[in-house]
């Protein structure tokens, strides 16, 4: 039963990921809000604390949160984001640890919206929302106002990750099943990043990672992951 389910999932996600793979040129515009191209010069951006959870998949396919992995992923992401964003021409600030509690609800809101953008816009296909007219038109609205008031930034960057890894037993089971011609899941990395305009809550740019590779448990692959996620991050206007 559960095997059947996973095979369905494999099929679905392969298909849903396909258009993005086939048409990189389209993907470019797909990731931006209508009318948005570059970041304002001299603008400031606040990097929110990444929302991340890591899981293991046991031999039987049971998925369990792994707090120790999550802990290190958090550190690695923070470090990679620091490097990546400092390289941009923006004034970068990071959300201080103590403000996390105050903005927890906004982070939860972002996660819900990001999931819908990923599902209904980037995956697209038969899950596209007709009322959005094929445009990436989502806004967190005035929910983000408190962030601007507190930190005075023009933009905020939200990052969200869920990543899972096969246990050794799982890998053994996968190997055995593969011999029988049955593919079962190893693990998958899902990441979302949203650039949000703090004036009106508009999601200006969005990207998603959805892949069977990538590892947040170690620093080097975590850096690769962040760079992949922010690969297409908007540039600052030339002048």
């Amino acid at each position: 039963m559960s095997l059947l389910i996973r095979r369905y999932l494999v099929v679905f996600f392969l298909f849903s990921a396909l258009p993005a793979v086939l048409s990189p040129a389209l993907a470019q515009s797909k990731n931006r809000a209508p009318g948005f191209s570059d970041l304002a010069k001299e603008a400031s951006i606040l990097v929110m604390t990444p929302d991340v959870e890591l899981y293991s998949i046991s031999a039987g396919g049971v998925i369990e949160p792994k707090a120790d992995w999550t802990e290190s992923a958090q550190r690695h992401l923070q470090a990679s984001l620091q490097t990546r964003m400092t390289g941009s021409q923006l004034k970068v600030q990071f959300l201080p640890e103590e403000d996390g509690d105050a903005f927890a609800e906004i982070s939860a809101l972002h996660a819900a919206v990001a999931q819908s953008i990923a599902l209904h816009h980037l995956s697209g296909g038969n899950l596209k929302l007709p009322t959005k007219n094929d445009q990436m038109d989502w806004s967190l609205g005035d929910a983000v106002t408190p962030i601007r008031q507190k930190h005075g930034a023009d933009y905020a960057l939200f990052v969200w990750f869920r990543d899972s890894y096969a246990s050794s037993e799982r890998k053994a089971a996968m190997f055995a099943m593969a011999l029988l011609g049955i593919g079962i899941s190893g693990g998958i990395q899902v990441g979302y990043a949203s650039l949000v305009d703090l004036k009106n809550g508009q999601v200006l740019w969005f990207n998603r990672l959805l892949r069977g590779t990538g590892d947040l448990r170690e620093q080097a692959p975590a850096t690769e992951t962040v760079n992949a996620l922010l690969n297409d991050f908007p540039a600052v206007a030339a002048r």
Binding site: A111, A112, L119, S185, G187, T213
Partner: peptide, 18 residues
């Protein structure tokens, strides 16, 4: 059902092992 989608990612299967 909503967690379904957020969890979709976790529950999702990809054929190659990591």
């Amino acid at each position: 059902r909503l967690p379904a989608v957020s969890t979709a990612a976790r529950a999702v299967a990809i054929p190659e092992p990591k």
